[in-house]
Every structure is written in C-alpha cells, then in structure tokens.
C-alpha cells in the first residue's frame, strides 16, 4: 500500500512536470501553428542554467530564478532571430529547422559545459522526507515539485482565461489573421507566448535536474513524451495537455513500478525484467496510437478554427 501511494505520487509529479513542458509546446503549436522540436533543448538549457547559477550564487532559490529568466530570454532571442521567419511555412520546414537547433544546442552545451553531466545539489531543507499521511513519508523535493507545478498550472489557467493577454492568446489560437486585423501587435504576442513556453520548459528542466543528472540530450526523450501528450490531449488545448500529461505520467511511472512484478507471474523472471521496461515505455505510444485511431483530433480538442 505504501509503495502504491508513493508511486502514485511519483507518477503525479512526473505528469505535472510533463505538463509544464507540454503546455508551452501546445501554446506555441496552437497559436502560431509552429512545431518546435527544440522545445526539449530549452528544457535542457533550463537545467544547465540552474546548475550553473546555483553554483555561482550558492543559493538554490536565487539560482533557480536566474535560470528561469535566462531561459525566457533565450526563448525570446531564439524566436526573434530565427523562428519567427518560419511561421506560415510548412510543418516540415519547422521540423527540419528545429531539428537543426537541437544539433546546435547539444553541441553548444558540450562546448560550454563539457560532455560530462552536471549535478544540481539540493539545499538541505528540500532533501528531508515529509510525512504526508500517518506513517507515509515522501521526499520534500518531489512534493515541492507537485506544489510548484500545480501553482504554475493554476497561474497559467488564470492568465489564459482571466486576463487580457490570455484573451488575446485565445483569440490568436482561434483566428490569427483576425486579431492581427483588429490592430493587435501579433508579432509581440507571438514572441511573448514563445518566451512563456520557453520559461515553462526551463522550469520543467530545472525541477527535474536534481532528480536526474543534468546531461546532453536530456530533453529529447521527454520532448517526445510531451508531443505524445499534446496529441493525446488535442493540439492547442491546455486543459487537454494537463489531463493527458497526468495520465501519461501515471501510466509511465506505475507501468515501470508494477509491470515487472505483474509480468513475473506469467514469464520467467529474467524475461520479465527485460521486457517490462520496454513494455511500459511502449504503453504510452500504444495509448497515443489508439487515441489517434479512435479520435484523430485528440481527447480534448481545442475549439475549431
């Protein structure tokens, strides 16, 4: 029972992290119709920035905020220099150009920080376990990820649904040309949304960093997961991304945790221990394939154009 609660929370935490990544991706896709494979690189950069700034300032909180700012700035610069010229082009052009950016970022990181990974050490107040239920302890850091991600999700919801900028974002998602014609500075809006998406990706990366190591290519696998999420949730839909992310996070984590034991009931233990990780990784793609076949628009499609 203990293990189940713990793994459930791990799944929730991973899902929320995925949501942060997927939210930026789905906003950029929904509003600018832009496929950004380099989103995973921003996630990676967030983690590297955090590891660097935390080491510089000797303060976890200060370093994290500096890293967030740096990722946001990087996103804005990236959009301004290169990506804005690609809006309105074919999706294939986006894929190719941002694939080039992935190559660039991976090698840039290797040049600046070296091929070995970095570690982002946690301050002592985040490393102790917290009692969440009588007799159930959970690491404070993972718990704080859940809290921060939920807060950010709420904030995002508030910004998108309750503010003027959010209204423009939603309007942009449903009809780009029209809000441009109404005199809204759509270029600025796009840059803003891209920067926001970059910051969210950076936040996801730096929060994941203390759990895993900070390394080159860390954004690639998780980027594919984020794409799976926005496809399952319906492209352009933040609500869909939220639900799909939690769903995928839970399936992935619970699959990894419990599938080996389940398989051991039917298979030999060696076969089960090699088959289980692959099978649990596959589960998500299987889910996506089923969703696409049954509901090609995703489970919670955004409003029709």
């Amino acid at each position: 029972m203990l293990v189940v609660v713990e793994q459930f929370l791990n799944g929730l935490q991973f899902g929320l992290l995925l949501f942060l990544l997927a939210a930026g991706l789905t906003l950029v896709f929904g509003i600018m119709d832009f496929v950004n494979l380099a989103h995973g690189s921003l996630y990676m950069m967030g983690a590297y920035f955090a590891a660097t700034f935390v080491a510089w300032t000797n303060s976890f909180i200060l370093g994290v905020f500096m890293a967030l700012g740096a990722t946001l700035l990087l996103g804005v610069v990236l959009e301004f220099v290169a990506l804005r010229h690609l809006y309105g082009r074919d999706h294939l052009d986006h894929v190719l150009a941002t694939f080039g950016l992935i190559l660039f970022f991976n090698d840039a990181v290797r040049l600046i920080w070296g091929p070995a990974g970095l570690v982002l050490p946690l301050p002592s107040w985040l490393t102790m376990p917290v009692q969440i239920l009588p007799g159930v302890y959970y690491p404070a850091y993972r718990l704080s990820i859940i809290v921060v991600a939920l807060l950010v999700a709420a904030l995002l919801y508030w910004v998108v649904m309750r503010t003027r900028v959010g209204m423009l974002i939603r309007a942009g998602a449903s009809n780009r040309e029209m809000i441009g014609a109404l005199g809204i500075n759509i270029k600025l809006l796009f840059t803003l949304v891209f920067g926001l998406g970059a910051a969210l990706a950076g936040l996801a990366g730096l929060m994941q960093a203390p759990i895993l190591t900070v390394q080159i290519g860390m954004g690639e696998n998780i980027l594919i997961l984020a794409f799976v999420i926005i496809v399952i949730g319906g492209i352009g839909s933040i609500r869909g991304a939220f639900l799909a992310a939690i769903f995928v996070g839970l399936i992935d984590t619970l699959g990894r945790a419990f599938l080996p034991d389940l398989l051991r009931m039917v298979l030999s233990s060696t076969a089960a221990s090699t088959a289980a990780p692959a099978l649990s990784s596959m589960l998500i793609y299987l889910l996506m394939a089923i969703v696409l076949v049954v509901r090609p628009e995703g489970l919670f499609p955004a409003a029709k154009r």
């Binding site: 999706h91 060696t270 990784s281």
Partner: peptide
Amino acid sequence: SLSLRTRGVYFIMITLAFAQMAYYVASALS
C-alpha cells in the same frame, strides 16, 4: 493503415510513435 486515418502533423506524430514502439520492442529482445 492506422496512421493514414490522420493527416498533417498528427501523421508526423503517429509515425514517430510507432517507430518509437519498434525501438522499445527491439530493446526488449533479450
């Protein structure tokens, strides 16, 4: 036959998903 039910970027993504499935199957061939 499954992927062709979708179009555009969804097609890009579903073919990617199937290839990743094949990748994971291969990494499970102990």
